[in-house]
Design a protein around this nucleic acid. Sequence first.
DNA 1: CTGAAAGCGCTAACAC
DNA 2: GTGTTAGCGCTTTCAG
Lengths: 329, 329
Amino acid sequence: MKRVTIYDVANEAKVSLATVSRVINGLEIVREDTRLRVEAAIEKLGYKPNAIAQGLALQKTTTIALVIPEASFTYTGQIINGLLDVAKIYKYSIMLHTTTEGIVDIGEIVETIIKSRVDGVVIYNDKLMVDELASLTKYNFPIVLIGNKMSTDNICSVYVDLEKAVYELVTQYIEKGRKNIAIIQDRKNKFAVEQLIKGAQRAFERKGMVFDKFIEIPREYRSSYVFLKDYFRTNTHDLIIAHRDSQALAVANAASENGIKVPQDLEVVCVIDTKYNAMVRPQLSSFAIPSYDLGAVAMRVMTKMLHMEEIDDREIELSYLFTPRQSTK
Amino acid sequence: MKRVTIYDVANEAKVSLATVSRVINGLEIVREDTRLRVEAAIEKLGYKPNAIAQGLALQKTTTIALVIPEASFTYTGQIINGLLDVAKIYKYSIMLHTTTEGIVDIGEIVETIIKSRVDGVVIYNDKLMVDELASLTKYNFPIVLIGNKMSTDNICSVYVDLEKAVYELVTQYIEKGRKNIAIIQDRKNKFAVEQLIKGAQRAFERKGMVFDKFIEIPREYRSSYVFLKDYFRTNTHDLIIAHRDSQALAVANAASENGIKVPQDLEVVCVIDTKYNAMVRPQLSSFAIPSYDLGAVAMRVMTKMLHMEEIDDREIELSYLFTPRQSTK
DNA sequence: CTGAAAGCGCTAACAC
DNA sequence: GTGTTAGCGCTTTCAG
């Protein structure tokens, strides 16, 4: 099919292109019969407004960029779903960018985003990308951060206070006398795990103790599970906290294969869980982070920034709900 | 920061905008010293070419649309990763669209895609969207289909022959005398499951039998697991084939909680598996569909269509590798 | 209520 | 080599 432009429609309907523009934008100042004529022409020619040209003329693209770590979509998936659902409501399109481990190319992503002239960018990334944020800010992009708490003139954020979550949990366990608590390090979510650790440290400190049990999976192990199976031959704990359900599961599996009973001897808790948690044995107790809502709220805030609506809270905290399952007593 | 255009750069560098255009596009016909001057100006002003304007002028966006079912990203995730990795190599950006259950809005997605003037569209959807494909074709979009086998002038596809996979598996089991075989229906992947069924039917037919064991999870059950737990009180099979690992897992869990031992009494196989399969007990035997490759190859084919390269195979079959694990003998 | 014309930022002939 | 100019398809004053 030949490209059909607003001119063709104007010709067909015997009006000027200005009028066509008016009807496709639903401006009320068009007489009924000419509107009908234009609509007929549009229909007949199969005309679809060129969003690129509109973008140029209007200086906006009704598109936002979403940046996420490539890794596993298992837990970013819900975030994306939430974001897309809200984006759909407000008619925004999404350009998807993923950051790879090799930190090098993140500059390229920012470059691409700037050139693409999207209306805003939503970033869900473990570490705060300070330099990149600065670039984006320099070019006036409204930004919404997921998972990191911070805000400026054109940056808002949506997050869950993981530190508090762990603080409360650990405090409980300490008070029950179950003080042998460890946290699994996660190279892929360094920042998030740091928050977990801070929470634990604060809880221990308040009781006049020091928290220092980090289980780090050495790089040379091809999976946490393999390492942990060794680990539990000579170690055990009262409680282990992991970031992702997959890691917590590796803990539970490795422990029980070493005769350590979960949850009797060892309790396990994770922060983020996926639908697999429902099918897995033992089902893992978790904080049930509201991933979908993180995405949905982030996009909602973005639309507010874009439409210059009043934003009363630029740092939105979403709450978790500790959900005990089979991996805790 | 004020918007800086190619004019500003031209001014700053004391050249015409044509020259600036030449240097940002790396055309060799620019003298060294003027190129340097232009580059300095670009650097000084922080100029970034406006991709929208380029898109208008060049009639191409270096962007492709990706359509996937919203559902769980657990298994589409790998496809996306594969696609993005290749897209990155060829400098294409991705606009992400998800189809929701409510079939109504898929027309809207197509509409949006047409307006967005992307260079091509990759579709991974269970059912073949015939009408939508027709629309897209009418507007001359090159299309690559993932999971569905078909091709036309501007449609290519990348898929795995699930029917053959099941045919071969079922044939083996029949020959071992284990003929009580069932397939789990999956409302979310109707088309894929249809192929599985066809494979089983063909296998049974060849042996002069009829395949007719479909386990359908009634809509009123909130999860397969809940239904299956009932189901296995009064039923059992030699082999059950499920599409996703999550369903296969529900089968294994429900069965063993009814005293049916997996794999001794009941064997379970799934088609698609995710990383969770490595952590789950029993680990599920599967066909190990190469999801990442499906995405990567799809995008590669797309670039070929876009660059008018010769395409020797417009329907690319990727192979699976049956991988026995703990859920089969 | 409708049309004419300028402009959004860039590319690509075509001159010089 | 480099500049001039005419689009790419649409929106938006400003006249009429």
